[in-house]
Amino acid sequence: MRNIRVLILGIYFGIVLVKGQVISWFRINEMFLFKDAYMYLVIASAIAVGIPSLIIIRRLQARTIDGEEIAISNKPLTKGNIIGGIIFGLGWAVTGACPGPIYAQIGSGTYLAIVTFLAALSGAYVYAIARPRLPV
């Protein structure tokens, strides 16, 4: 049942990504060229909703609709945040898609994005192999 709810949220997210053109290579390119404020405003307003909603969830000690406690784990700062982050950014500008949009591009009928997807899977696999040797 929970998985069905997650599926519906995924569908919702996919629709928003497409209708907001967040999955467009051109939008991402304009963002990095500073030609258009659109993507910056999208990200800023998403965070502007995210921050207060997490504060409220914490304040009210809200539970899930299944009645479970909500635990939000913290992520530690690592060298990977910077090195991996820059590597991801390089790829993001080329493919015009971060992970969410890769899936939405495929669904939207831009089937060429399957190439991006398979390559991203391979990239994650390379990371899995290389991980013991990478700076943490």
Partner: peptide, 23 residues
């Protein structure tokens, strides 16, 4: 370009422990 870019996205997001969504 998509092959190389995709590799960087997959490797980079896992090394960074998250992407535009998670981070």
């Amino acid at each position: 370009l998509l092959l190389i870019g995709g590799l960087l996205v997959g490797f980079g997001t896992r090394y960074a422990d998250g992407c535009t969504s998670g981070h």
